[in-house]
Design a binder for these strands. Structure first.
Length: 829
RNA sequence: GCCCGGGUGGCGGAAUGGUUUACGCAGAGGACUUAAAAUCCUUGACCCGAAAGGGUUUGUGGGUCCGAAUCCCACCCCGGGCACCA
């Protein structure tokens, strides 16, 4: 019989569903193992081979855990809300509501075919009211706990997608989705106070077993800096300017201040600024500049002095000028800095351009390199003095001679500054001016606003939709295209937005923006545990039982998007008492990227691989194994058609071997084994290797070990029992063909995927003989087979007696002989 | 610029202080076949050599060590992340 995956794969997929092979008992599971993978956006033409790569890698791990006796829960769903899906619907000219149905059917059909052990009964689709009901509930909780707020602010706006974006969705000044250059807009938006958790998000990282690069990316994104806030008085004014600095020890070197164009002090001092028109012109221009324009200028420093405004350096009472420049960001720290041009490269550049004084307070140790130049000449040069390592303070009065660390504390204390920690992380802007998302469940009443009434004193007029009135259904709006006017298409549907004020009964208005897709995916894993629950977002008992998830797998591109948001939401839920963990995923592993012809797959390059045709031609088992054999799972690899053949041959050989050797022979007869010791030793080595490699996600080497074992079987023969062990080891990789052989050829009644995982017997790993490597001066000159009980003396003697060694050494007397137990003899002459 | 990965045969990769190139792909030779495909067997870094064997080789240069792809220093190249964050 021929190996025909087209026949056996659908057969077992159907049977697994009927027999509920992959449905754990969510309430009674004894050893729960939540094997979670990032669910796909069903936005494009279909499942991508990159998705399949990710899912297969996760599934193999889950299948092994199942065989090790865990109750593995491996759910799947669709992250179907959001701009991805909406843009796709626009492109193909379908309404997102209708497109969602099509995409859903197509995706689930494809996902069915890849042969993962999904718990198909517990699916989640983020665009269904029974799901987004609870996304809205989550928003209401954020509001109730003062983590959601509405504020007018400068935001990132994508002119193509016509919506606001969060900071995390802007990459290199461009929209993360479409690559359009993002511009700044002043808009009133809903945000979540993720910054409240900045410390916790950072500190918890240490305890997490996550891919290191993801942890580093999050750490950089959160961007914690220790420093101090120091107040500078303005001469002849009651105003002052607070600056944030990480180097308060260089305060005596501060020769001017710089404020950002957004800084309120500029407006406050307007009447005193002698050159106001020039200043006004500068700040207007600076505010309108987008990132691209800024980088096009090559970051050449620009700025204008606030003439007639002087600040007083609190350390030495010096009068120093104040400038406005856009190299200081309004959104970070206090929006103002003290400039220490001798020791900060940006300040140095600026000072040189505008001829501002430069004063060294930490002399470079290697000042000798610059000859005997006076400090004056030294800093007139183009070489930035930098910060002399371990150098001691000068020009700092009573602090002269102090080291940096001590001076930070002492000088801060001296000027009554405040030690402070700053974060780069900013709040998560959650509202989107698009159609395809969960409506934000808030109502605004104008009458209440005027009367200063509402649920939150800082946001009069705003009320959350009562929880019993959720979900706020997304209406079917015919023209769902973004309006571009800063409001969502929902704002055109009067029936939707016109409501009665929950407090005073006056005519009020619903919020018409929808929430960011990343909110949908920030809690989906919780919903998997009770997808049909109509009473509550989560099932407490199951949450306790199954979470935090044992393993989460997904792409590293979500390092600072999804993976940060999902942690934040878990921390909030924890603080509100809904879950008992702060971190939702104990272990996270980022898989590599599948590329094609050395380039990322993309439609524009025309190098996207669709898994369907490969599954149709070779079968899912072959494609699964091929993808896993390419390279280590965490590395990714280049997809090349030719390589698929190697795996196809391997599986055919497995099929042939099983059929030829075992189908006709009675079970108890076994078959002839020509070299029992050798083949058993190989078998148990393989069990050990495959077990360890799967644990490390080194699927490529596990597969290679299985190939070596099959080669051994073909050469030496094996027994039916031992071949059964091989099948079990292969089962996570090729679930269909192993099931077919296990049940049809071998006649077992139950699934191989519920068999127990093989355990190696150490007695077979003890070798009778060892190979001793012979070296002369570290160069290999031969090998010797010796009994495993060989002693150092025997090995050395045998080495010296070796013909080749004798010839190499000649008449020279060995100076030294290195012996590594049962491994190597190195003769030094 | 800063922070992470990485650089090994014709190719994907294996080896993290002790036999470089496991496993697979492609190649070459052979068997089977009227023929082809499929399958199987042999071979397989490079140079010298008939062979035994010797020499060279893990991006480049240096170092540590009896011994380095592996550890250390400097540099080059590729991929990814951050980027005027004070």
């Amino acid at each position: 019989m021929k190996y025909d995956p087209r026949e056996i794969e659908p057969k077992w997929q159907k049977k697994w569903l009927e027999e509920r092979v992959y449905e754990p008992d969510l309430d009674g599971a004894k050893k729960p193992f939540f094997n979670l993978m990032m669910f796909p956006y069903p936005s494009a033409e279909g499942l991508h081979v990159g998705n399949m790569y990710a899912f297969t890698g996760s599934d193999i791990y889950g299948r092994k855990k199942r065989m090790e006796g865990y109750d593995v829960f491996e759910p799947i769903g669709l992250d179907g809300f959001g701009i991805h899906s909406e843009n796709y619907a626009m492109k193909v000219g379908t309404h997102p509501v209708d497109q969602a149905k099509k995409s859903e059917a197509h995706f689930y059909d494809q996902l069915q075919k890849i042969g993962n052990g999904f718990a198909w009964n517990e699916r989640v689709e983020t665009y269904k009211p029974e799901y987004y009901h609870w996304t809205q509930w989550l928003f209401v909780q954020m509001w109730k706990h003062d983590l959601a707020y509405r504020k007018r602010q400068s935001v990132n706006w994508c002119p193509k997608d016509q919506t606001v974006l969060s900071d995390e969705q802007v990459e290199d000044g461009k929209c993360e989705r479409c690559g359009t250059v993002v511009i700044k807009k002043e808009l009133e938006q809903w945000s979540f106070r993720i910054t409240k958790y900045a410390d916790q998000l950072l500190n918890n990282l240490e305890k997490l077993d996550w891919s290191e690069k993801v942890k580093i990316a999050q750490k950089n994104w959160i961007g914690r800096s220790e420093g101090a806030e120091i107040e500078f008085k303005i001469q002849d004014s009651i105003s002052n300017i607070r600056v944030f600095t990480t180097r308060p020890d260089t305060l005596f070197g501060a020769t001017y201040l710089v404020v950002s164009p957004e800084h309120p002090i500029i407006e406050n001092l307007r009447s005193k600024i002698e050159n106001w028109p020039a200043v006004e012109k500068y700040i207007t221009e600076a505010k309108s500049k987008n990132n691209e324009e800024r980088s096009a200028e090559g970051r050449e420093k620009t700025g204008v002095e606030l003439k007639e405004i002087n600040a007083i350096n609190p350390a030495n009472g010096e009068k120093i000028p104040v400038w406005v420049a856009d190299y200081v960001l309004g959104s970070y720290g206090t929006g103002a800095i003290m400039a220490v041009p001798a020791h900060d490269e940006r300040d140095f550049e600026f000072a040189k351009k505008f001829h501002l004084p430069i004063r060294i307070v930490f002399p470079p140790i290697d000042i000798a390199e610059f000859g005997n130049a006076s400090l004056d000449e030294f800093y007139k040069g183009s070489v930035f003095p930098g910060l002399g390592k371990d150098s001691l303070l000068v020009n700092s009065k009573k602090f002269d001679g102090m080291d940096s660390e001590t001076a930070k504390k002492e000088i801060t204390k001296f000027v009554r500054g405040e030690l402070k920690t700053q974060f780069r992380l900013r709040d998560w802007i959650i509202s989107r001016q698009r159609y395809w998302g969960p409506p934000i469940p808030m109502i605004f009443c104008d009458a209440c606003a005027k009367a200063e009434k509402g649920e939150h004193k800082d946001m009069p007029g705003w009320y959350a939709v009562d929880e019993k009135d959720l979900p706020v259904l997304l209406p079917y709006v015919k023209d769902f295209r973004p309006t571009g006017s800063g409001v969502s298409p929902l704002a055109t549907d009067k029936e939707f937005y016109e409501v009665k004020c929950p407090a005073c009964g006056a005519t009020a208005r619903r919020e018409t923006d929808v929430s960011d897709t990343f909110l949908d995916s920030a809690w989906y894993y919780l919903r998997y545990l009770d997808t049909r629950n109509e009473k509550s977002a989560l099932n407490d008992a199951r949450v306790k039982h199954w979470l935090p998830a044992a393993l989460y797998t997904g792409g590293a591109e979500h390092s600072v998007l999804h993976l940060l948001y999902v942690r934040f939401v878990a921390m909030a839920l924890h603080d509100w008492g809904f879950v008992d963990f702060e971190e939702p995923f104990k272990k996270f592993r980022a898989h590599g990227l599948i590329i094609k012809d050395g380039a990322k797959m993309s439609k524009s390059k025309g190098n996207v691989v669709n898994p369907d045709e490969y599954i149709a031609n070779f079968g899912a088992d072959t494609l699964r194994m091929y993808l896993m054999f390419l390279a280590p799972f965490e590395q990714g690899g280049d997809f090349r058609d030719a390589g698929v053949l190697g795996i196809e041959r391997f599986l055919k050989r497995v099929w042939q071997y099983a059929g030829n050797k075992f189908s006709a022979v009675p079970a108890e007869a076994g078959i002839h084994v020509s070299s029992e010791k050798e083949i058993h030793s190989l078998l148990h080595k393989t069990i050990k290797k495959v077990t360890e490699d799967i644990e490390d996600l080194h699927y490529n080497t596990a597969i290679s070990a299985l190939m070596i074992l099959l080669n051994g079987f073909e050469e030496h023969g094996t027994t039916k029992d031992d071949f059964g062990i091989f099948l079990k080891l292969l089962a996570p990789f090729a679930p269909h063909v192993t099931e077919e052989i296990w049940r049809e050829t071998f006649g077992h009644a139950t699934s191989i995927h519920h068999e127990s995982w093989p355990v190696h017997d150490p007695k077979w790993l003890i070798a009778d003989t060892v190979t001793i490597v012979l070296q002369v001066n570290g160069k290999m000159r031969g090998t010797l087979q010796m009994d495993a009980s060989v002693t150092e003396e025997d090995a050395k003697a045998a080495a010296l007696a070796d013909e080749n060694i004798k010839r190499t050494i000649g008449s020279a007397a060995p100076k030294k002989i290195i012996y590594v137990d049962k491994k190597l003899v190195n003769i030094v002459i």
